[in-house]
C-alpha cells in the first residue's frame, strides 16, 4: 500500500448471496483524489461502492484502509430513496446523526456535536432550513443535507451513491459544485457513483470504469475518450 493510498483493493471479489458480481478488482484510491464510478446499468458500480464501505462481505481478496475506520469512518451519502419518510426528523436531526459515529452508547450528544452539525449544514448552504422537516425538502436539498451529515463524521473520504439521481439540472449543478469544492478546498477524497457522463467528465480527474464484472481505473481522458465512449455506447454520449 502506497503512503498516500486511502483505499487499496487487492484481487477483490464482491457479490450477494455467494453470487459474484465483481471479480479480481485491484486498484488504489489516493488521498485527495476525486473520482467517479461509471459504467452501464447493473454493471456493479453500487456493489463496488458498498464493498468499499464494508456494507457487503468480501468474497475473495482484501480491502486495506489507509485511515482509522473507527475514529474517522467514511462519509457515506446513500441514495435518498433508501431512507423512509415515515421517520419524523428535522434537517438538523438528520445532520446530527453523523456525529453519532464517535458517540459511545450512553454518551450524550454534547454542545460540540451540535455545533459541528450546524457548521456542516452551513457548509452546504442550508443552515436556514435546520428546523424544517427533512421530508419537506426538495430532492436536491435532501441530497445536500445528506452530504452535510456525511461531513459531520469528519471523514477523510466521501463516498456518494448517485448523489444527483432524480434531481433537476439546476440542483445537479449545485450538488456537483459543492462536492468539487469540498475536494478542492478541504482536500477531501471523493468517490461518487454517477450516470452523468458529461457532467462528471468536466469535474473528476480519474474514473473507475465498471463493466462485465471488472473494474478498471484510469484518467478521465483515457477512460472517457470520445472514440471509446462512442464505441461503448454508440451514438449515446450524453448520459450512460
Amino acid at each position: 500500500m502506497t503512503n498516500t493510498a486511502l483505499l487499496q483493493l487487492r484481487d477483490l471479489s464482491l457479490g450477494y448471496d455467494g453470487r459474484v458480481v465483481l471479480e479480481s478488482v485491484s486498484l488504489s484510491i489516493e488521498r485527495g483524489e476525486f473520482l467517479a464510478l461509471l459504467g452501464p446499468n447493473g454493471a456493479g458500480k453500487t456493489t463496488l461502492l458498498r464493498g468499499m464501505l464494508g456494507l457487503i462481505p468480501v468474497l475473495a481478496g482484501q480491502i486495506e484502509y489507509g485511515f482509522d475506520r473507527l475514529a474517522h469512518p467514511p462519509g457515506y451519502v446513500p441514495q435518498r430513496e433508501t431512507l423512509d419518510p415515515i421517520f419524523p426528523l428535522t434537517v438538523f436531526e438528520v445532520v446530527l446523526m453523523g456525529t453519532y459515529a464517535r458517540l459511545a452508547p450512553l454518551q450524550k450528544v454534547r454542545q460540540r456535536n451540535r455545533q459541528l452539525a450546524a457548521l456542516c449544514l452551513e457548509q452546504v448552504g442550508l443552515a436556514h432550513l435546520a428546523n424544517r422537516p427533512f421530508w419537506a425538502l426538495s430532492g436536491g436539498q435532501k441530497q445536500r443535507v445528506l452530504i452535510a451529515r456525511a461531513l459531520a463524521v469528519e471523514p477523510e473520504i466521501l463516498l456518494l451513491d448517485e448523489p444527483t439521481s432524480g434531481v433537476d439540472p439546476g440542483a445537479t449543478s449545485a450538488i456537483m459544485d459543492l462536492i468539487a469544492r469540498l475536494n478542492h478546498e478541504r482536500g477531501l477524497t471523493v468517490v461518487l457513483v454517477s450516470h452523468h457522463l458529461r457532467l462528471v467528465r468536466s469535474l473528476v480527474r480519474s474514473v473507475i470504469w465498471v463493466e462485465e464484472g471488472r473494474a478498471t481505473k484510469g484518467s478521465t481522458d483515457r477512460i472517457l475518450a470520445p472514440e471509446r465512449v462512442a464505441d461503448i455506447f454508440g451514438t449515446l454520449t450524453g448520459t450512460v
Binding site: 458498498r50 464501505l53 464494508g54 456494507l55 475506520r69 473507527l70 469512518p73 467514511p74 457515506y76 446513500p78 433508501t82 431512507l83 423512509d84 421517520f87 426528523l89 446523526m97 453519532y100 459515529a101 458517540l103 452508547p105 450512553l106 450528544v109 463524521v153
Partner: peptide
C-alpha cells in the same frame, strides 16, 4: 431513552450504522 440514538440509527439508516461500525 438511554439508547434512543442507537435505536434511531439502526432503524432509520441501518447501512450508516454498519459504516459507523
Amino acid at each position: 431513552f438511554a439508547f434512543r440514538k442507537e435505536f434511531l440509527l439502526v432503524s432509520f439508516d441501518r447501512d450508516l450504522a454498519i459504516v459507523f461500525r
